[in-house]
């Protein structure tokens, strides 16, 4: 019961933060509401018993990534975003499409809730040790391949940011 109440509180904060993130016009405000989203997500992970993921979420996302975001916003001295009117196609096709997708997902998840089995929030507890064993045994190859992904992302950033010689 306590879990459910906590879940509802933090899920609500998470969604509100995400909406605020989209609606704010100043980049710093958006970045700050993203921190709210990250923090409440971390708490949701904690409720699910994934303590390691929760800690990583706080340290990496809310800590490192967001600090970088704010730094970049400061360095670029980004002002308020300009509103564009938006395209009409996006309004007439996108919004109904989004609602349809959301409805479909909600319907599917609620329709299959009896088949998915019953699990209590907080009923699972995955210790970090088990996570480590899975990561360095079964998921060793994806783990190593991720280094190529990171390398290519760094290289791409360098290439695109470098000054072109005349």
């Amino acid at each position: 019961m306590l879990h459910t109440i906590l879940f509802l509180i933090f899920a609500g904060i998470c969604v509100a933060g995400a909406l605020n993130f989209l609606l704010q016009r100043h980049p710093v405000n958006s970045a700050l509401s993203l921190i709210v989203v990250m923090g409440s997500l971390a708490l949701l992970f904690l409720l699910l018993g994934a303590e390691f993921v929760a800690a990583v979420q706080i340290i990496v996302y809310a800590g490192a990534v967001m600090v970088l975001f704010v730094f970049v916003i400061m360095l670029l001295n980004a002002g308020e975003e300009e509103r564009t009117r938006g395209s009409r196609v996006a309004l007439f096709l996108g919004v109904p499409g989004l609602i349809a997708l959301f409805g479909l997902l909600c319907w599917t998840l609620s329709a299959s809730r009896f088949q998915l089995g019953q699990v209590q929030i907080g009923g699972y507890y995955v210790p970090t040790q088990e996570l480590g064993i899975a990561l360095f045994r079964e998921f060793l190859l994806p783990f190593e391949i991720t280094s190529v992904l990171v390398l290519i992302a760094i290289m791409g950033a360098v290439v695109l940011a470098r000054k072109e010689r005349p």
Partner: peptide, 28 residues
Amino acid sequence: VGMVLMSSAVELVLIFIALEISSIATYV
């Protein structure tokens, strides 16, 4: 590397990472 790995991977997490490698390379 990403593209060839996509064709031999039979695990969705690995496929996703390979897909990202090939995508980010082409974005840049």
